[in-house]
Design a protein around this nucleic acid. Structure first.
Length: 554
RNA sequence: UGGGGAGUCGCCAAGUGGUAAGGCAACGGGUUUUGAUCCCGUCAUUCGUAGGUUCGAUCCCUACCUCCUCAGCCA
């Protein structure tokens, strides 16, 4: 993994390199600016890795700033979860957490300044009227009848807005720019509205709240952000970002750059739709392991470094993209491969009775084939074993390397075993196997013949019962929200979760929540963060192993 | 039919006037008591289309096509 820390070139790094080379900046300051109105998802993870990652690579700083200007939708629960997610991903913001609400007083003063310059006015139009006056994409808007109020009147009215003299929504403060602009964002955008809502930090101190476009640029300037990075949909807000900073007396004028947001195959990255899944109980919550939220991915067993590697692999650009889930899975597997201890577990047991069990011994086995430092554990043997039902076939397909009637197979870390008889129930299903082992094959190959297959197994006597949750993609199609006419929930995968009662080897008995393992030949699994306890083992399947056999069969 | 963006391999993505990086996936081979890992090899005469400038263009110019995005007192 020599590439893991090698930065990948992208247009933002190119800009930063140029800014540093020209002396425009001597160091950089970025920021991650979430609104605390929901949980962070994989798209935010990309943004976090970008903003914090740049700060790390360029030895600059990155702030965490909450865009808390819409009190009706925001909560501390979300703010706390967001901080936890950023830290879990391995990043630390510069100084204290910042809040846009910290700047409310300054924001207000700058609004007064705009009014004094004749660049903002109080408007009494109703929302419906304002929409009519705004024009359309192809027709210019027209001026509000209140647009030419005197500076004194505007000052008075704005002061009274703050003082709470007017009802919610009765008036707004608007920037006076150009109602005929071809950019609708410049048609006198609202910058303050009246809303008597309890704010998570300022409580009831304010009944007017600044809008995003007005707040964000000034917040960036107050924090001396050098590169303000956001997603593509804010591209046409940039003229407004610049207009505000050009007309207000802040010393600093950060530059905004936009990159394309992440789309991931077989999932969705819309806060609204994610919320819908939670509200409609399509998933168990924000941290359901099928959710592309940071909390969900974490609970599933995705690792912070794996997610960072994923972000590195997908890069940053301005083009629309829909990333293959294989890139995520590849990054997670690569991260887990060199550190997850190998253990054996049986998901779908088929009982095996060993006829010549007498004298069979346990054997010590490494927890990792290439990392002896991870230690060893005993692999016990017994008269009765469990093997994976899928590992036996009475009528094997071509290329079969596993167990079949009369055939031999290596039991992982143990003996070579032959199947002598398949016991069936009345409907003809194989319910048990009678097998025998070659006592001379413990830790060595049999003489005179080759056994190509290896299957995992558990000694019934020693195995521990466990709940195993098998997760699959949340949706049945790669782009569930691509079709505007079909609701994305129609594409929910009914088989995205299968809970089975399986068996695991005793060495995992005392494992803590969030412990990663590779169940040999099955995949990477993680003890559940919430439900796993010693004595009540719960494993989540993080991702399967690459499987060229199943692929070949398909 | 207004404004703002984007079109480079199946999926991401560098590059930029000098003759197409890399990753993922895929495919072929080797090692292997995980059909895993690991190792080796293959994988764009071509950069949305059509013209033009040039000794030379994915990079410059012109026209066109396709897709995304904007009409919240959300962010």
């Amino acid at each position: 993994m020599s590439t893991a820390n090698t930065p990948v070139s992208n247009f933002i790094r190119t800009i930063i390199d140029a800014d540093l080379a020209s002396g425009k900046h001597s160091s950089i300051v970025t920021r991650f600016p979430p609104e605390p109105n929901g949980y962070l998802h994989v798209g935010h993870a990309k943004s976090i890795c970008l903003n914090f990652g740049l700060a790390v690579d360029y030895q600059g700083k990155c702030n965490l700033r909450f865009d808390d200007t819409n009190p009706e939708k925001e909560s501390f629960e979300y703010a706390q979860s967001i901080q936890e997610d950023v830290r879990w991903l391995g990043f630390q913001w510069d100084g204290e957490v910042r809040w846009a609400s910290d700047y409310f007083e300054e924001l207000y003063a700058f609004a007064v300044e705009l009014i004094q310059k004749g660049l903002a006015y109080v408007d009494d139009l109703t929302p419906e009227e304002m929409r009519e006056y705004r024009g359309t994409l192809t027709e210019p808007g027209k001026n509000s009848p209140y647009r030419d109020r005197s500076i004194d009147e505007n000052l008075d009215l704005f002061g009274r807005m703050r003082a709470g003299e007017f009802a919610d929504g009765a008036r707004v403060l608007r920037a006076k720019i150009d109602m005929a602009s071809s950019n609708i964002n410049m048609r006198d955008p609202v910058i303050y509205r009246i809303r008597r809502a309890h704010h998570i930090r300022t409580g009831d101190a304010w009944c007017i709240y600044p809008m995003y476009d007005y707040t964000h640029c000034i917040s960036d300037a107050l924090e001396a952000i050098t590169h303000s990075i956001c997603t593509l949909e804010f591209e046409d807000h940039r003229p407004l970002y610049d207009w505000v900073l050009d007309n207000v007396s802040v010393a600093c004028h950060p530059r905004q750059y936009e990159f394309s947001r992440l789309e991931l195959h077989y999932t969705i990255t819309s806060k609204r739709k994610l919320l819908q899944l939670v509200n409609e109980k399509k998933v168990s919550g924000w941290d359901d392991p099928r959710m592309p939220t940071i909390q969900g991915m974490r609970r599933r067993g995705y690792t912070a470094s794996g997610l960072r590697e994923f972000a590195r692999r997908i890069g940053v650009s301005k083009s629309e993209n829909s990333v293959d889930m294989a890139i995520m899975e590849g990054a997670i597997r690569e991260d887990l491969e060199p550190r997850a201890p190998r253990v054996m577990a049986i998901i779908n047991p088929l009982k095996v009775t060993i006829s010549n069990f007498e004298g069979a011994e346990a054997r010590e086995a490494d927890f990792h084939p290439n990392l002896p430092e991870l230690g060893k554990r005993a692999v016990p043997f017994g008269r009765e074993l469990y093997i994976e039902a899928d590992d036996f076939a009475e009528v094997p397909p071509a290329g079969w390397k596993r167990l079949t009637l009369g055939g031999e197979v290596r039991l992982r870390h143990s003996y070579v075993m032959r199947c002598d008889e398949a016991v069936k129930d009345s409907s003809g299903n194989v319910v048990e196997l009678k097998c025998s082992i070659d006592h001379a094959t413990l830790g060595k190959n049999p003489e005179g013949r080759k056994v190509k297959g290896v299957i995992h197994f558990l000694s019934c006597e020693h195995a521990l019962p466990a709940e195993i949750r098998l997760y699959d993609r949340l949706f049945t199609v790669a782009r569930p929200d691509a079709d505007r006419d079909v609701d994305f929930s129609n594409y929910l995968n009914p088989d995205s979760l299968k809970v089975v009662q399986g068996w695991v080897e005793a060495s995992v008995k005392e494992s803590a929540p969030e412990t990663h393992y590779q169940f040999e030949r099955l995949g990477y699994f993680c003890t559940d963060r919430r439900d796993h306890k010693p004595g009540s083992l719960v494993f989540n399947r993080t991702v399967t192993l690459k499987d060229s056999w199943t692929r070949e069969q398909a």
